[in-house]
Design a protein around this nucleic acid. Structure first.
Lengths: 240, 240
DNA sequence: GAGCCCCCATTGTGATCACAAAATTCCAGG
DNA sequence: CCTGGAATTTTGTGATCACAATGGGGGCTC
Protein backbone atom coordinates (compact mmCIF):
# COMPACT_ATOMS: atom_id res chain seq x y z
CA UNK A 1 0.00 0.00 0.00
CA UNK A 2 1.18 3.41 0.94
CA UNK A 3 0.84 4.75 -2.51
CA UNK A 4 1.75 8.21 -1.38
CA UNK A 5 4.74 8.71 0.80
CA UNK A 6 3.74 9.18 4.37
CA UNK A 7 7.06 10.55 5.45
CA UNK A 8 7.02 12.33 8.74
CA UNK A 9 3.69 13.92 8.46
CA UNK A 10 3.32 15.32 11.89
CA UNK A 11 5.45 18.38 11.54
CA UNK A 12 3.04 21.21 11.55
CA UNK A 13 4.06 24.61 10.43
CA UNK A 14 7.08 25.75 8.54
CA UNK A 15 7.27 22.91 6.09
CA UNK A 16 9.66 24.32 3.59
CA UNK A 17 11.26 21.01 2.78
CA UNK A 18 11.12 19.60 -0.70
CA UNK A 19 9.08 16.55 0.18
CA UNK A 20 7.04 16.84 -2.98
CA UNK A 21 5.14 13.62 -2.58
CA UNK A 22 3.56 14.56 0.67
CA UNK A 23 0.36 16.47 0.33
CA UNK A 24 1.48 19.13 2.71
CA UNK A 25 3.97 20.49 0.26
CA UNK A 26 1.34 22.04 -1.96
CA UNK A 27 0.91 25.74 -1.89
CA UNK A 28 -2.29 27.64 -2.26
CA UNK A 29 -4.43 24.53 -2.14
CA UNK A 30 -5.89 23.21 1.06
CA UNK A 31 -5.01 19.76 2.21
CA UNK A 32 -8.56 18.49 2.13
CA UNK A 33 -8.90 19.65 -1.44
CA UNK A 34 -5.79 17.78 -2.46
CA UNK A 35 -7.03 14.70 -0.63
CA UNK A 36 -10.33 15.12 -2.44
CA UNK A 37 -8.67 15.25 -5.82
CA UNK A 38 -6.57 12.20 -5.25
CA UNK A 39 -9.36 10.03 -3.92
CA UNK A 40 -11.61 11.31 -6.67
CA UNK A 41 -9.10 10.29 -9.28
CA UNK A 42 -8.74 6.86 -7.77
CA UNK A 43 -12.49 6.40 -7.91
CA UNK A 44 -12.89 7.88 -11.35
CA UNK A 45 -10.14 5.86 -12.96
CA UNK A 46 -10.52 2.68 -11.08
CA UNK A 47 -7.92 2.72 -8.36
CA UNK A 48 -10.51 1.47 -5.90
CA UNK A 49 -12.75 -1.49 -6.54
CA UNK A 50 -16.54 -1.26 -6.18
CA UNK A 51 -17.70 -2.50 -2.82
CA UNK A 52 -14.37 -1.99 -1.13
CA UNK A 53 -14.31 -0.23 2.19
CA UNK A 54 -12.76 3.15 2.81
CA UNK A 55 -11.71 4.16 6.29
CA UNK A 56 -10.80 7.62 7.43
CA UNK A 57 -7.74 6.59 9.35
CA UNK A 58 -6.65 4.31 6.56
CA UNK A 59 -6.79 7.09 4.02
CA UNK A 60 -5.17 9.51 6.40
CA UNK A 61 -2.23 7.18 7.01
CA UNK A 62 -1.93 6.40 3.33
CA UNK A 63 -1.77 10.05 2.40
CA UNK A 64 0.28 11.19 5.34
CA UNK A 65 -2.21 13.63 6.77
CA UNK A 66 -4.42 13.74 9.82
CA UNK A 67 -7.96 12.55 9.66
CA UNK A 68 -9.45 16.05 9.57
CA UNK A 69 -8.92 16.88 5.89
CA UNK A 70 -9.76 13.29 4.99
CA UNK A 71 -13.09 13.64 6.72
CA UNK A 72 -13.97 16.72 4.75
CA UNK A 73 -12.87 15.20 1.47
CA UNK A 74 -14.80 12.01 2.12
CA UNK A 75 -17.86 13.94 3.16
CA UNK A 76 -17.70 15.83 -0.07
CA UNK A 77 -17.36 12.67 -2.12
CA UNK A 78 -20.31 11.16 -0.29
CA UNK A 79 -22.36 14.19 -1.19
CA UNK A 80 -21.38 13.69 -4.83
CA UNK A 81 -22.40 10.04 -4.60
CA UNK A 82 -18.89 8.93 -5.40
CA UNK A 83 -18.79 7.21 -2.03
CA UNK A 84 -21.57 5.61 -0.08
CA UNK A 85 -22.22 6.12 3.62
CA UNK A 86 -23.68 2.91 4.98
CA UNK A 87 -25.96 2.54 7.94
CA UNK A 88 -22.98 1.40 10.00
CA UNK A 89 -21.59 4.85 9.34
CA UNK A 90 -18.88 3.14 7.35
CA UNK A 91 -17.90 4.28 3.92
CA UNK A 92 -17.51 2.23 0.76
CA UNK A 93 -17.28 2.54 -2.99
CA UNK A 94 -20.88 1.90 -4.06
CA UNK A 95 -21.64 -1.44 -5.65
CA UNK A 96 -23.42 -1.38 -8.97
CA UNK A 97 -27.02 -2.43 -9.20
CA UNK A 98 -29.29 -2.77 -12.18
CA UNK A 99 -31.44 0.12 -10.95
CA UNK A 100 -28.54 2.48 -10.42
CA UNK A 101 -27.15 1.51 -13.79
CA UNK A 102 -30.41 2.28 -15.58
CA UNK A 103 -30.68 5.64 -13.88
CA UNK A 104 -27.14 6.58 -14.72
CA UNK A 105 -27.67 5.58 -18.31
CA UNK A 106 -30.84 7.62 -18.53
CA UNK A 107 -29.31 10.68 -16.90
CA UNK A 108 -26.32 10.55 -19.23
CA UNK A 109 -28.52 10.35 -22.29
CA UNK A 110 -30.66 13.18 -21.06
CA UNK A 111 -27.82 15.55 -20.28
CA UNK A 112 -24.69 14.83 -22.25
CA UNK A 113 -25.94 15.12 -25.84
CA UNK A 114 -27.59 18.39 -24.96
CA UNK A 115 -24.45 19.60 -23.26
CA UNK A 116 -22.45 18.73 -26.35
CA UNK A 117 -24.88 20.66 -28.52
CA UNK A 118 -24.54 23.65 -26.26
CA UNK A 119 -20.78 23.40 -26.45
CA UNK A 120 -20.92 23.27 -30.23
CA UNK A 121 -22.17 26.82 -30.39
CA UNK A 122 -19.02 28.05 -28.71
CA UNK A 123 -16.48 25.72 -30.29
CA UNK A 124 -13.62 27.28 -32.17
CA UNK A 125 -11.43 25.56 -34.70
CA UNK A 126 -8.62 25.30 -32.19
CA UNK A 127 -10.93 23.54 -29.74
CA UNK A 128 -11.82 20.95 -32.34
CA UNK A 129 -8.15 20.41 -33.03
CA UNK A 130 -7.57 19.89 -29.30
CA UNK A 131 -10.34 17.35 -29.19
CA UNK A 132 -8.89 15.56 -32.18
CA UNK A 133 -5.57 15.35 -30.42
CA UNK A 134 -7.23 13.87 -27.35
CA UNK A 135 -9.06 11.41 -29.57
CA UNK A 136 -5.79 10.26 -31.00
CA UNK A 137 -4.42 9.59 -27.55
CA UNK A 138 -7.60 7.60 -26.92
CA UNK A 139 -6.86 5.47 -29.96
CA UNK A 140 -3.29 4.92 -28.89
CA UNK A 141 -4.28 3.84 -25.39
CA UNK A 142 -7.03 1.66 -26.79
CA UNK A 143 -4.73 -0.19 -29.14
CA UNK A 144 -2.10 -0.54 -26.46
CA UNK A 145 -4.63 -2.07 -24.10
CA UNK A 146 -3.86 0.67 -21.60
CA UNK A 147 -7.09 0.66 -19.67
CA UNK A 148 -6.33 3.52 -17.33
CA UNK A 149 -4.86 5.62 -20.10
CA UNK A 150 -7.96 5.04 -22.18
CA UNK A 151 -10.25 6.03 -19.32
CA UNK A 152 -8.30 9.18 -18.59
CA UNK A 153 -8.22 10.24 -22.21
CA UNK A 154 -11.89 9.41 -22.70
CA UNK A 155 -12.73 11.51 -19.66
CA UNK A 156 -10.63 14.34 -20.99
CA UNK A 157 -12.37 14.18 -24.35
CA UNK A 158 -15.89 14.31 -22.98
CA UNK A 159 -15.29 16.99 -20.41
CA UNK A 160 -13.09 19.15 -22.62
CA UNK A 161 -16.11 19.24 -24.88
CA UNK A 162 -18.72 19.69 -22.19
CA UNK A 163 -16.81 22.43 -20.44
CA UNK A 164 -16.85 24.44 -23.62
CA UNK A 165 -20.58 24.79 -23.11
CA UNK A 166 -19.80 26.94 -20.08
CA UNK A 167 -22.83 25.36 -18.45
CA UNK A 168 -21.11 24.80 -15.17
CA UNK A 169 -24.16 23.66 -13.33
CA UNK A 170 -24.86 20.91 -15.83
CA UNK A 171 -21.23 19.93 -16.10
CA UNK A 172 -21.18 19.46 -12.35
CA UNK A 173 -24.16 17.14 -12.54
CA UNK A 174 -22.52 15.10 -15.27
CA UNK A 175 -19.27 14.91 -13.32
CA UNK A 176 -21.19 13.53 -10.38
CA UNK A 177 -22.69 10.91 -12.66
CA UNK A 178 -19.33 9.91 -14.07
CA UNK A 179 -18.02 9.45 -10.55
CA UNK A 180 -20.74 6.92 -10.01
CA UNK A 181 -19.93 4.63 -12.88
CA UNK A 182 -16.18 5.12 -13.10
CA UNK A 183 -15.30 2.09 -10.99
CA UNK A 184 -17.46 -0.15 -13.16
CA UNK A 185 -15.92 1.09 -16.34
CA UNK A 186 -12.59 0.00 -14.98
CA UNK A 187 -13.93 -3.35 -13.92
CA UNK A 188 -15.53 -3.89 -17.31
CA UNK A 189 -12.45 -2.97 -19.32
CA UNK A 190 -10.30 -4.95 -16.96
CA UNK A 191 -12.34 -8.02 -17.76
CA UNK A 192 -12.78 -7.65 -21.48
CA UNK A 193 -10.08 -5.26 -22.56
CA UNK A 194 -10.23 -2.10 -24.62
CA UNK A 195 -9.78 -3.60 -28.06
CA UNK A 196 -13.48 -4.12 -28.77
CA UNK A 197 -14.42 -0.51 -28.18
CA UNK A 198 -15.86 1.27 -31.19
CA UNK A 199 -14.85 4.84 -31.70
CA UNK A 200 -17.89 7.08 -31.91
CA UNK A 201 -15.74 10.09 -31.28
CA UNK A 202 -14.87 10.17 -34.95
CA UNK A 203 -18.49 10.79 -35.80
CA UNK A 204 -18.72 13.38 -33.07
CA UNK A 205 -15.67 15.19 -34.42
CA UNK A 206 -17.05 15.08 -37.95
CA UNK A 207 -20.31 16.58 -36.75
CA UNK A 208 -18.41 19.31 -34.95
CA UNK A 209 -16.49 20.17 -38.08
CA UNK A 210 -19.77 20.50 -39.98
CA UNK A 211 -21.37 22.37 -37.10
CA UNK A 212 -24.10 19.76 -37.17
CA UNK A 213 -25.83 19.89 -33.80
CA UNK A 214 -28.19 16.99 -34.27
CA UNK A 215 -25.41 14.86 -35.67
CA UNK A 216 -23.29 15.63 -32.64
CA UNK A 217 -26.16 14.75 -30.35
CA UNK A 218 -26.56 11.42 -32.09
CA UNK A 219 -22.87 10.67 -31.95
CA UNK A 220 -22.65 11.39 -28.23
CA UNK A 221 -25.79 9.40 -27.60
CA UNK A 222 -24.38 6.47 -29.54
CA UNK A 223 -21.12 6.73 -27.64
CA UNK A 224 -22.97 6.61 -24.34
CA UNK A 225 -25.14 3.74 -25.45
CA UNK A 226 -22.20 1.71 -26.66
CA UNK A 227 -19.99 2.41 -23.66
CA UNK A 228 -22.67 1.83 -21.09
CA UNK A 229 -23.94 -1.27 -22.86
CA UNK A 230 -20.44 -2.60 -22.68
CA UNK A 231 -20.20 -1.90 -18.98
CA UNK A 232 -23.64 -3.32 -18.33
CA UNK A 233 -22.86 -6.54 -20.14
CA UNK A 234 -19.55 -7.00 -18.43
CA UNK A 235 -20.52 -6.07 -14.89
CA UNK A 236 -24.18 -6.75 -14.38
CA UNK A 237 -24.24 -10.17 -15.97
CA UNK A 238 -21.92 -11.52 -13.33
CA UNK A 239 -22.05 -11.47 -9.57
CA UNK A 240 -20.45 -8.22 -8.57
CA UNK B 1 -5.61 2.26 27.11
CA UNK B 2 -3.95 5.03 29.01
CA UNK B 3 -7.04 6.92 29.83
CA UNK B 4 -6.42 9.30 32.62
CA UNK B 5 -9.69 10.77 33.54
CA UNK B 6 -9.91 13.93 31.57
CA UNK B 7 -13.05 14.70 33.42
CA UNK B 8 -13.77 17.93 31.68
CA UNK B 9 -13.83 16.39 28.24
CA UNK B 10 -17.35 15.21 27.84
CA UNK B 11 -18.91 17.28 30.55
CA UNK B 12 -17.84 20.59 29.23
CA UNK B 13 -20.89 20.92 27.09
CA UNK B 14 -23.06 18.94 29.42
CA UNK B 15 -26.26 20.33 28.14
CA UNK B 16 -28.88 18.60 30.17
CA UNK B 17 -30.91 21.74 30.06
CA UNK B 18 -34.22 21.95 28.31
CA UNK B 19 -32.84 24.11 25.58
CA UNK B 20 -35.07 22.71 22.87
CA UNK B 21 -33.27 24.66 20.20
CA UNK B 22 -30.13 22.74 20.82
CA UNK B 23 -29.35 19.96 18.42
CA UNK B 24 -27.81 17.59 20.91
CA UNK B 25 -31.15 16.27 22.04
CA UNK B 26 -31.55 14.08 18.98
CA UNK B 27 -30.90 10.41 19.25
CA UNK B 28 -29.68 8.09 16.57
CA UNK B 29 -28.81 10.87 14.15
CA UNK B 30 -25.39 12.38 14.01
CA UNK B 31 -24.98 16.00 14.89
CA UNK B 32 -23.56 16.99 11.54
CA UNK B 33 -26.51 15.42 9.78
CA UNK B 34 -28.92 17.40 11.90
CA UNK B 35 -26.94 20.56 11.23
CA UNK B 36 -27.04 19.72 7.55
CA UNK B 37 -30.79 19.32 7.57
CA UNK B 38 -31.41 22.58 9.34
CA UNK B 39 -29.15 24.68 7.18
CA UNK B 40 -30.49 22.94 4.12
CA UNK B 41 -34.03 23.84 5.08
CA UNK B 42 -33.06 27.41 5.69
CA UNK B 43 -31.55 27.61 2.24
CA UNK B 44 -34.34 25.74 0.52
CA UNK B 45 -37.15 27.74 2.02
CA UNK B 46 -35.53 31.08 2.17
CA UNK B 47 -34.26 31.52 5.69
CA UNK B 48 -31.00 32.86 4.33
CA UNK B 49 -30.74 35.58 1.74
CA UNK B 50 -28.71 35.12 -1.45
CA UNK B 51 -25.29 36.64 -1.12
CA UNK B 52 -25.24 36.56 2.65
CA UNK B 53 -22.18 35.17 4.36
CA UNK B 54 -22.11 31.99 6.40
CA UNK B 55 -19.42 31.44 8.99
CA UNK B 56 -18.58 28.19 10.68
CA UNK B 57 -18.29 29.59 14.16
CA UNK B 58 -21.41 31.63 13.66
CA UNK B 59 -23.43 28.61 12.72
CA UNK B 60 -21.88 26.57 15.49
CA UNK B 61 -22.79 29.13 18.12
CA UNK B 62 -26.26 29.53 16.70
CA UNK B 63 -26.94 25.81 16.83
CA UNK B 64 -25.12 25.15 20.08
CA UNK B 65 -22.55 22.71 18.72
CA UNK B 66 -18.85 22.78 18.09
CA UNK B 67 -17.47 23.72 14.73
CA UNK B 68 -16.69 20.14 13.74
CA UNK B 69 -20.14 18.96 12.70
CA UNK B 70 -20.81 22.36 11.16
CA UNK B 71 -17.75 21.98 8.99
CA UNK B 72 -18.91 18.65 7.66
CA UNK B 73 -22.43 19.89 7.02
CA UNK B 74 -21.20 22.99 5.25
CA UNK B 75 -18.75 20.98 3.19
CA UNK B 76 -21.59 18.76 2.11
CA UNK B 77 -23.78 21.70 1.17
CA UNK B 78 -20.93 23.20 -0.82
CA UNK B 79 -20.61 19.94 -2.73
CA UNK B 80 -24.32 20.12 -3.49
CA UNK B 81 -23.90 23.68 -4.71
CA UNK B 82 -26.27 24.95 -2.06
CA UNK B 83 -23.44 27.04 -0.67
CA UNK B 84 -20.55 28.66 -2.47
CA UNK B 85 -16.95 28.51 -1.37
CA UNK B 86 -15.30 31.74 -2.41
CA UNK B 87 -11.66 32.27 -3.18
CA UNK B 88 -11.26 33.83 0.25
CA UNK B 89 -12.26 30.40 1.58
CA UNK B 90 -15.32 32.09 2.97
CA UNK B 91 -18.74 30.67 2.44
CA UNK B 92 -21.87 32.37 1.16
CA UNK B 93 -25.27 31.65 -0.27
CA UNK B 94 -24.66 31.93 -4.02
CA UNK B 95 -25.95 35.01 -5.78
CA UNK B 96 -28.11 34.44 -8.84
CA UNK B 97 -26.78 35.21 -12.27
CA UNK B 98 -28.43 35.05 -15.64
CA UNK B 99 -26.18 32.18 -16.68
CA UNK B 100 -26.86 30.10 -13.60
CA UNK B 101 -30.54 30.78 -13.98
CA UNK B 102 -30.60 29.58 -17.57
CA UNK B 103 -28.74 26.43 -16.69
CA UNK B 104 -31.02 25.65 -13.80
CA UNK B 105 -34.04 26.20 -15.98
CA UNK B 106 -32.66 23.93 -18.66
CA UNK B 107 -31.70 21.20 -16.24
CA UNK B 108 -35.12 21.26 -14.62
CA UNK B 109 -36.89 20.97 -17.96
CA UNK B 110 -34.61 18.15 -19.00
CA UNK B 111 -35.04 16.08 -15.87
CA UNK B 112 -38.26 16.80 -14.03
CA UNK B 113 -40.86 16.01 -16.71
CA UNK B 114 -39.10 12.75 -17.42
CA UNK B 115 -38.92 11.97 -13.71
CA UNK B 116 -42.64 12.63 -13.42
CA UNK B 117 -43.33 10.30 -16.33
CA UNK B 118 -41.27 7.61 -14.69
CA UNK B 119 -43.16 8.10 -11.45
CA UNK B 120 -46.46 7.81 -13.26
CA UNK B 121 -45.80 4.16 -14.05
CA UNK B 122 -45.66 3.36 -10.35
CA UNK B 123 -48.35 5.68 -9.06
CA UNK B 124 -51.22 4.12 -7.17
CA UNK B 125 -54.59 5.69 -6.55
CA UNK B 126 -53.64 6.43 -2.97
CA UNK B 127 -50.55 8.27 -4.14
CA UNK B 128 -52.63 10.50 -6.38
CA UNK B 129 -54.92 11.22 -3.47
CA UNK B 130 -51.92 12.18 -1.37
CA UNK B 131 -50.73 14.53 -4.07
CA UNK B 132 -54.17 16.08 -4.32
CA UNK B 133 -54.13 16.71 -0.58
CA UNK B 134 -50.76 18.40 -0.88
CA UNK B 135 -52.05 20.47 -3.78
CA UNK B 136 -54.90 21.69 -1.64
CA UNK B 137 -52.49 22.83 1.03
CA UNK B 138 -50.62 24.63 -1.72
CA UNK B 139 -53.80 26.47 -2.68
CA UNK B 140 -54.50 27.38 0.91
CA UNK B 141 -51.01 28.77 1.46
CA UNK B 142 -51.15 30.58 -1.85
CA UNK B 143 -54.40 32.31 -1.06
CA UNK B 144 -53.24 33.14 2.43
CA UNK B 145 -50.11 34.75 1.03
CA UNK B 146 -48.04 32.36 3.16
CA UNK B 147 -44.85 32.36 1.14
CA UNK B 148 -42.92 29.84 3.18
CA UNK B 149 -45.92 27.55 3.50
CA UNK B 150 -46.39 27.69 -0.24
CA UNK B 151 -42.76 26.86 -0.90
CA UNK B 152 -42.76 23.95 1.53
CA UNK B 153 -45.97 22.51 0.09
CA UNK B 154 -44.78 23.01 -3.47
CA UNK B 155 -41.58 21.22 -2.63
CA UNK B 156 -43.52 18.41 -1.02
CA UNK B 157 -45.72 18.07 -4.08
CA UNK B 158 -42.91 17.84 -6.57
CA UNK B 159 -40.72 15.50 -4.61
CA UNK B 160 -43.52 13.29 -3.39
CA UNK B 161 -44.17 12.73 -7.08
CA UNK B 162 -40.56 12.39 -8.16
CA UNK B 163 -39.68 10.02 -5.37
CA UNK B 164 -42.36 7.66 -6.58
CA UNK B 165 -40.19 7.12 -9.63
CA UNK B 166 -37.71 5.37 -7.34
CA UNK B 167 -35.00 6.90 -9.50
CA UNK B 168 -32.89 7.95 -6.57
CA UNK B 169 -29.95 9.08 -8.63
CA UNK B 170 -32.05 11.46 -10.66
CA UNK B 171 -34.00 12.67 -7.66
CA UNK B 172 -30.71 13.55 -6.00
CA UNK B 173 -29.69 15.62 -9.01
CA UNK B 174 -32.99 17.46 -8.97
CA UNK B 175 -32.74 18.10 -5.26
CA UNK B 176 -29.36 19.65 -5.81
CA UNK B 177 -30.89 21.90 -8.45
CA UNK B 178 -33.73 22.98 -6.19
CA UNK B 179 -31.22 23.89 -3.53
CA UNK B 180 -29.68 26.29 -5.99
CA UNK B 181 -32.75 28.30 -6.80
CA UNK B 182 -34.60 28.04 -3.49
CA UNK B 183 -33.34 31.34 -2.11
CA UNK B 184 -34.45 33.17 -5.25
CA UNK B 185 -37.89 31.70 -5.16
CA UNK B 186 -38.25 33.17 -1.72
CA UNK B 187 -36.94 36.51 -2.83
CA UNK B 188 -39.27 36.55 -5.81
CA UNK B 189 -42.38 35.64 -3.86
CA UNK B 190 -41.40 38.00 -1.12
CA UNK B 191 -41.40 40.81 -3.65
CA UNK B 192 -44.48 40.01 -5.64
CA UNK B 193 -46.48 37.69 -3.47
CA UNK B 194 -48.03 34.33 -4.17
CA UNK B 195 -51.40 35.44 -5.46
CA UNK B 196 -50.41 35.61 -9.10
CA UNK B 197 -49.22 32.04 -9.32
CA UNK B 198 -51.11 29.85 -11.71
CA UNK B 199 -51.77 26.32 -10.62
CA UNK B 200 -50.45 23.87 -13.17
CA UNK B 201 -50.65 21.11 -10.63
CA UNK B 202 -54.32 20.68 -11.46
CA UNK B 203 -53.38 19.71 -14.99
CA UNK B 204 -50.69 17.43 -13.68
CA UNK B 205 -53.13 15.70 -11.36
CA UNK B 206 -55.65 15.32 -14.15
CA UNK B 207 -53.00 13.73 -16.37
CA UNK B 208 -52.06 11.36 -13.57
CA UNK B 209 -55.66 10.28 -13.16
CA UNK B 210 -55.86 9.53 -16.88
CA UNK B 211 -52.44 7.88 -16.81
CA UNK B 212 -51.46 10.27 -19.57
CA UNK B 213 -47.68 10.41 -19.60
CA UNK B 214 -47.22 13.06 -22.25
CA UNK B 215 -49.89 15.21 -20.62
CA UNK B 216 -48.08 14.93 -17.31
CA UNK B 217 -44.81 15.86 -18.94
CA UNK B 218 -46.40 18.93 -20.46
CA UNK B 219 -47.99 19.96 -17.19
CA UNK B 220 -44.73 19.68 -15.26
CA UNK B 221 -42.89 21.50 -18.00
CA UNK B 222 -45.46 24.27 -17.94
CA UNK B 223 -45.22 24.47 -14.16
CA UNK B 224 -41.47 24.83 -14.36
CA UNK B 225 -41.67 27.41 -17.12
CA UNK B 226 -44.20 29.48 -15.27
CA UNK B 227 -42.51 29.29 -11.88
CA UNK B 228 -39.05 29.96 -13.19
CA UNK B 229 -40.25 32.73 -15.46
CA UNK B 230 -41.76 34.32 -12.42
CA UNK B 231 -38.53 34.07 -10.49
CA UNK B 232 -36.50 35.30 -13.41
CA UNK B 233 -38.68 38.34 -13.89
CA UNK B 234 -38.67 39.23 -10.24
CA UNK B 235 -35.02 38.65 -9.44
CA UNK B 236 -32.97 39.10 -12.56
CA UNK B 237 -34.60 42.30 -13.70
CA UNK B 238 -33.39 44.14 -10.64
CA UNK B 239 -29.99 44.53 -9.09
CA UNK B 240 -29.57 41.53 -6.86
C1' DG C 1 -9.72 66.34 5.97
C1' DA C 2 -8.20 62.35 3.33
C1' DG C 3 -5.27 58.47 2.51
C1' DC C 4 -2.30 54.90 4.34
C1' DC C 5 -0.58 51.59 7.52
C1' DC C 6 -0.48 48.87 11.53
C1' DC C 7 -2.80 46.20 14.98
C1' DC C 8 -6.26 43.17 16.45
C1' DA C 9 -10.46 40.49 15.84
C1' DT C 10 -12.50 37.13 12.94
C1' DT C 11 -12.32 33.10 10.27
C1' DG C 12 -10.84 28.83 7.96
C1' DT C 13 -7.66 24.94 8.35
C1' DG C 14 -5.42 21.14 10.41
C1' DA C 15 -4.01 18.19 14.42
C1' DT C 16 -4.95 15.73 18.51
C1' DC C 17 -7.70 13.78 22.10
C1' DA C 18 -11.73 11.33 24.25
C1' DC C 19 -15.44 8.40 23.71
C1' DA C 20 -19.02 5.12 21.99
C1' DA C 21 -20.39 1.85 18.85
C1' DA C 22 -19.33 -1.64 15.71
C1' DA C 23 -16.43 -5.27 14.05
C1' DT C 24 -13.04 -8.56 14.75
C1' DT C 25 -10.40 -11.74 17.38
C1' DC C 26 -9.86 -15.06 20.76
C1' DC C 27 -10.88 -18.57 23.78
C1' DA C 28 -13.60 -21.75 26.30
C1' DG C 29 -17.22 -25.19 26.14
C1' DG C 30 -19.80 -28.43 23.66
C1' DC D 1 -14.30 -29.08 14.74
C1' DC D 2 -17.87 -25.84 15.54
C1' DT D 3 -20.21 -22.37 18.29
C1' DG D 4 -21.11 -18.54 21.29
C1' DG D 5 -19.77 -14.87 24.02
C1' DA D 6 -16.32 -11.90 26.09
C1' DA D 7 -12.27 -9.02 25.29
C1' DT D 8 -9.78 -6.28 22.16
C1' DT D 9 -9.20 -3.60 18.21
C1' DT D 10 -10.95 -0.72 14.74
C1' DT D 11 -13.61 3.12 13.33
C1' DG D 12 -16.62 7.20 13.21
C1' DT D 13 -17.96 11.31 15.81
C1' DG D 14 -17.42 15.44 18.30
C1' DA D 15 -14.69 18.86 21.02
C1' DT D 16 -10.79 21.64 21.69
C1' DC D 17 -6.49 23.78 20.61
C1' DA D 18 -2.93 26.09 17.63
C1' DC D 19 -1.90 28.68 13.73
C1' DA D 20 -2.05 31.48 9.33
C1' DA D 21 -4.45 34.58 6.56
C1' DT D 22 -7.82 37.75 5.63
C1' DG D 23 -10.63 41.86 6.96
C1' DG D 24 -11.78 45.79 9.40
C1' DG D 25 -11.01 49.63 12.46
C1' DG D 26 -8.38 53.11 14.54
C1' DG D 27 -4.72 56.08 14.63
C1' DC D 28 -0.96 58.29 12.28
C1' DT D 29 1.03 61.10 8.58
C1' DC D 30 0.82 64.38 4.96
Amino acid sequence: MKRFADATAGVKSGRTDDDAQTIQGFVGVTTHEEVYRRVREQILFGGIKPGSAVTLRGLADELGVSSMPVREAVRRLIAERALLLQDNRRVMVPPMTREAFDQILFARRALEPELAARALEKLKKADIADLQAIDQSIDIAMRAGDTEGYMRANYRFHFALYRKSESWTLVALVESIWLQFGPFMRTAYGRIGTSTIEDHHEFALAAMAKHDASGLRSAIDADIGQGMGFIGDAVLSRPS
